[in-house]
Amino acid sequence: MISIDETQINLIKNKFGNKVKEINLDKHDRLYITIDEDTVKELAEYVHNELGFKHANFCMGTDLDDKIEVSWYLGNPDFKTILVIRTFADREKPEVPSLRYLWSGMEWHERETFEMLGVIFKDHGDLRKLILPDLWDGYPLRNDYVYQKPSYRKPEDELMS
C-alpha cells in the first residue's frame, strides 16, 4: 500500500498557502493538516473531490484548556495514509462547520462531539444528543466538568416529542 507523497502534500500547500497553519506527516503515516475554521470546508471539499479521500473515518474533539481542537479523520482505500483535518474552536463559543454533507458517516461522530465537548457543528441539521440522556447537563469530556446528577426525564415527554 502506498502512502501519500510529497507531490500531493505540495498540492495542498500550494492551493491553500498560508491558510494552512501546520502540515505534518508523522512516522505512522498520519497527515495532520491544521487549518483555520473558516477554510475547513474548502479544504474538505478539495481532499474529498480531488484527492479521493471519500472514506469517512471519525471525528473527535479534545479540550486543550484554552481552546477546543476538532479533528476529522479521513481515509482513502488506495492509500495507507489517514488524512486529518484539524481546526481549533473558541472555548466560549465553539463553532465549526459540519462536514456531514461530504461524509455522511460523520453524522453520529459530530453529534457525539457536540454532546461531549459542546462543539456546535454549523449546518449539521440534526445536532441532538446521541449517547447521553437528553436532560444531561454539561459536557463530560471538558477538563473542567464536574458531575451533576441529571434531572429525571418523564417518559411521556420522550414519546410525545
Binding site: H55, W103, G105
Partner: peptide, 18 residues
Amino acid sequence: ALSLGTTGPVLRGSGIKY
C-alpha cells in the same frame, strides 16, 4: 459504504477491497 465510513465485511461486501 465509503461515505458512511463502514469498514470490515460491510465495506468489503460492497465491492471495496479494503
